[in-house]
Amino acid sequence: MAETVLETENLTMRFGGVVAADNVSFRLAARELRCLIGPNGAGKSTFFKCITGLLTPSDGRIFMRHEETTGWHPHEIASLGVGVKTQVPSVMDGLTVRENIWLAARRRHPVVEANRKTADMIERLELNAIAAADVGRLAHGERQQVELGIVAVGDPWLVLLDEPAAGMSAGDVERMVAIIRELNRSAAVIIVEHDMQFIRSIASTVTVFHQGSVLMEDHVDKVMSDETVRRVYLGKKG
């Protein structure tokens, strides 16, 4: 097994009386691709937010590359080399595509290097035609792509994607999968997703959340055929 890049130890998050994440112990190896699934309210997003520092867990510990990051601020975690894509695209609407990506590149590189990396990333994502347009004017799929560009240009070793395929057309999803695969060559990736089609197309280990804790963790095909998972999650769809 490769080096562990992310580990949580009995991670628990309580909101008042509600236990949103209950004793989650989770491990992710370097360059692994992992999908988190589960019905609404299963605790995926809470877990996700605890890792990224947007929430401070009530209990338990988080380690990244063997460094404890429990209670760190999002910018400190990001500075380690962790890229995050939020559920609702979080991009700078009033700025151009180029400026959005440049700001991400500038965090880790001096200006000249940042300029070069920005140009490369725009090339790679084929965003040339819209590079000078304000992000706020773009279509949803393009905005998602810009956000992925922001994440990718930081050369992360851990990428956290919250519902990257939400609201995207089939063609967009295909491109998204290609980008994620490329990211995955150098980084471990966690994807929180509802879209089973998308998860199948990416085919990886899946962790199933249910009522705040991990129900099961296995390869996507096994998870899909599991009775319990079908009952709690896929239920109606069969």
């Binding site: 910018h75 979080s90 930081g154």
Partner: peptide
């Protein structure tokens, strides 16, 4: 434009 994004960038 976006405090969240900027802090997620580090």
């Amino acid at each position: 434009e976006s405090e969240t994004r900027m802090s997620l960038m580090g």
